[in-house]
Design a protein around this nucleic acid. Sequence first.
DNA 1: CTGTTAGCGCTTTCAT
DNA 2: ATGAAAGCGCTAACAG
Lengths: 338, 338
Amino acid sequence: MAQESTTRRPTIRMVAERAGVSAATVSYVLSGRPGAQASGVREDTEVRVRSAAEELGYVPNSSARAVRTGRTGTILLSLTMLSDPWSLSIVRAVSRAGAGAGLTPLIAADTDWRPLIHKVQTDAIFIDAPAKGQEDLFASLAAAGHNLIVLHPEMEPAGFDVVRSEEYAGCKLLADRLLDQFSTVGLLAPRGLDPTNLGRRASAYVDALEARGLSVRPEWCPPTGDDETSAFQAALDLLRSPDRPRAVMATSEFIAQAALGAAAVLGLRPGVDIGIAGVGNAFDDRTGGVGLTSVGPEGFFEAVADLIVGRATGTDTSPRRAHAFAWQVFDRETTLGI
Amino acid sequence: MAQESTTRRPTIRMVAERAGVSAATVSYVLSGRPGAQASGVREDTEVRVRSAAEELGYVPNSSARAVRTGRTGTILLSLTMLSDPWSLSIVRAVSRAGAGAGLTPLIAADTDWRPLIHKVQTDAIFIDAPAKGQEDLFASLAAAGHNLIVLHPEMEPAGFDVVRSEEYAGCKLLADRLLDQFSTVGLLAPRGLDPTNLGRRASAYVDALEARGLSVRPEWCPPTGDDETSAFQAALDLLRSPDRPRAVMATSEFIAQAALGAAAVLGLRPGVDIGIAGVGNAFDDRTGGVGLTSVGPEGFFEAVADLIVGRATGTDTSPRRAHAFAWQVFDRETTLGI
DNA sequence: CTGTTAGCGCTTTCAT
DNA sequence: ATGAAAGCGCTAACAG
């Protein structure tokens, strides 16, 4: 903590002095641990210590404590796209799961996590979008004692956990469902059909079409980009066209929201005038607004949160491994009519 | 960092041993600081040290460093309602402002910040929704050397900074603007017109109406609650009514988004069939979807970010004080037609 | 240019 | 029931 030159942060020793006890006793009292081999601290000493601490405005130095104990009671969640409902669902699930164990999630939003782990010490680190080729780095961090949980469809666990969700299979499922219900289906994906960069989710869409002998219409698959503005624009352009598809499949809930917004502006009622479906199923415990038809792994957030918390506490000592989650379609209003 | 029993995290001494130098030298190399009074470290030593660190997968213990230096390079942002665009704007602004000084924001989402400051050490703490009656706590934390910046309309600075924004005056401005443009204006506020809990923003609406001799119609001011679902429902109910107002004023951007969603479902075009305005003006640098008419302090996020960063680095040594921001109305598509 | 030394604030045996 | 002392991993004077 950066300090005023005039103000000094009170230490445990100052509290001890004021209470007329030793630093050790203060530590026992304030951390609620039984002192040494005996059962506890005498009532009146405890009271003296507590009021001395209060009077001085003493806040224990968490860094010093962490140096000794090796634990911090925090979990680092490195999340790109904090505005995505998916991210908020992760945060909420980890908060809930960690509360019992006294663990609090700290969020790093859309930042490179490498400099961060040089700055903050946490009991576990979750990374939602590891870059390609960072396997070795992860492995060495894991070997150095870090509790790493990464979300990645292909990376192999090597001392760290890998959370996998079957996005390709899931998205294929969704595309098929949409094609069953709607005569024509468009795609809203960050890079559209860009062949040099066709994501798993977009591939599933393409494959579903081709399996039915339908041809892919590029004008129905505009790239949305990665930010809200461009996603909204792309959706608007697509839905505004007189020749628009009957439904669109958005490759993230974030893009689905942009599509909902675009439909709103155009006066198209989701589920009535236009079918809209997203990928991720982050709404199941949030249900923001109209129910968005989506595909995703059931119980995903809770399971991932439990994993992270188990690793952070040290309760879960099973070997680090890959955790796969199967996806299913959740039909909601945006494809059913309201 | 919780560790495997088998794996031990490498220390600076292990690196030193492997490189055949002292711990101090390793410290100099890795923190990029010039050693003692001389200009630097010899080239070859530096190389040896770096590769030794690499091979061991050494990551410096940030807690130990923080104990020594008293600084962490992080800023704690305690934010309620992370889904609100306002919060995301704060995060983005602080990220940007802190990047140059090597400061990274860490976000605590919708959590009590008190246990947190016992767990993490940061160079500054921003609190967006301090509870009533915490003034004394803040003052004592400040006295104990914490860099506190709180957002509050009335709290008086006492060793900590208070960021104020003139919400009442601003909301009055917005309500007046809407009443100039639309014959009837409804209100979407968390607790509606609840007299026991009438917020500043809702009061401004009421006062604006009364100043014009207009009567407040309770059925146009349903409580939205604090979560997206209920906000959406409330908006839907209001806008669905045949007797709905021509425009609605939402007391946050988050509620405004719910209103936009409700309008979407009903096929009402914002700015054409229904006027919608929000409070906060967080969209100015995000422009998600349709341009939302809003009221808010101009340059707010940048100014607050600069304040936080200045306090965190210690650059800004001016006395802690209240920082007021005047609001203005930003007319955009949702009240103008698209 | 590098090593030695002395702590930072805290927890935790081990005595008493 | 409490205190003395050692040491976590690191940095910062100072010595050489």
